[in-house]
């Protein structure tokens, strides 16, 4: 094998002549290959797909923000931790986007003929900002490490509460993704809560920053618990979870962290939507447009590209 390696070619050198591993991690088959994706009774396919986009977009956009810390975190351990958490969220997002496409193929953007882009990638890279249904909490800039931990604490506490309930969904795919996601979100939440406590009980400067970070994101905290019509319908059908139902539980958990940290719950009025429309309706802050521009530019420049 070794003598066949073309030393002028860096890829060949890496692979030792075995091209079966080329495009590692990208030339995927369907991530739901062999999984039963039939629609559970009593739920509209479009509703289920829309609900999946909400869950997937929350994870995808949060994941992208966390990856922005890569090579920039305060130390190597936190760099690795944030990348690991981002990877878990990306994995959750990919499976749920694939589930959205299977539930209603019409939600997948049309691509040029011959494009090898799989449906979950088409949904991630070829939708515009107004088609993203994530809550606005996840899309803003990271700010400093204190603000990032404050946001991750609120986000992971909320998402863990949602996934704990979603694990008993009548939709087998969502139930499975949620059961796995609970294990992951558990250590995301512990990680963020410990850092929140450490920073709040640390120096005057670390405390100032984490408190400012929490205050800075708090205007988008209320939006997490507003139940959209689609969420209401899929919850009534036993397939989804109404976020309003987890508000009390999330509140208790956050209070535990705040009181251990000696931090007062912020009193910041919620960031208004436009005529009641917010992230779940596709109405976003400018930050999402910038984020998507960076995240999507390569994929959009090469819609027929094979990665």
């Amino acid at each position: 094998m070794a003598e066949e390696v073309d030393h002028e070619n860096a890829y060949d050198g890496l692979l030792g002549g075995d091209d079966s591993q080329w495009a590692f991690g990208t030339d995927f088959e369907d991530p739901l290959a062999g999984v039963d994706t039939s629609l559970p009774g009593g739920v509209d396919g479009r509703d289920l797909a829309t609900y999946c986009l909400m869950l997937a977009d929350d994870a995808l956009v949060m994941s992208h923000r966390l990856t922005e810390w890569c090579s920039r975190a305060p130390d190597l351990e936190e760099d690795i931790a944030l990348a690991n958490i981002a990877l878990d969220l990306l994995g959750q997002s990919r499976l749920v986007l694939a589930r959205a496409a299977a539930a209603d193929p019409s939600v997948v953007p049309a691509l040029p003929e011959g494009s090898p882009v799989p449906p979950e990638d088409a949904l991630a890279f070829f939708r515009d900002d107004r088609e993203f249904l994530n809550v606005r909490l996840v899309e803003g800039d990271n700010g400093d490490f204190g603000r990032t931990m404050a946001r991750l604490l609120v986000f992971s506490t909320w998402r863990l509460a949602l996934l704990e309930r979603l694990a008993s969904s009548r939709d087998h795919v969502l139930a499975a993704v949620a059961a796995k996601g609970v294990k992951e979100m558990t250590y995301h939440r512990d990680y963020a809560a410990r850092w929140f406590l450490t920073l709040a009980r640390g120096t005057d400067e670390s405390r100032r920053r984490v408190v400012e970070g929490l205050t800075g994101i708090w205007s988008l905290h209320g939006e997490l618990f507003v139940t959209h019509d689609v969420e209401r319908r899929v919850a009534d059908a036993g397939v989804g979870v109404a976020p309003g139902d987890v508000a009390a539980e999330v509140d208790v958990l956050l209070e535990q962290v705040f009181s251990a940290s000696g931090v007062e719950r912020p009193t910041v009025p919620p960031l208004a939507g436009v005529r009641g429309r917010t992230g779940r309706h596709g109405l976003h802050t400018e930050a999402l447009s910038h984020l998507l521009a960076e995240m999507q530019v390569v994929a959009r420049a090469h819609p027929r590209g094979s990665w």
């Binding site: 079966s20 591993q21 990208t26 969220l89 994995g91 990919r94 499976l95 993704v177 796995k180």
Partner: peptide, 21 residues
């Protein structure tokens, strides 16, 4: 039939390739 370890585990594609090969 395989079960991925973590949701985002990038080794799943390699595991699949290895099995097929």
């Amino acid at each position: 039939t395989i079960t991925p370890t973590y949701s985002g585990c990038p080794a799943v594609a390699t595991m699949r390739d290895d099995l097929v090969h």
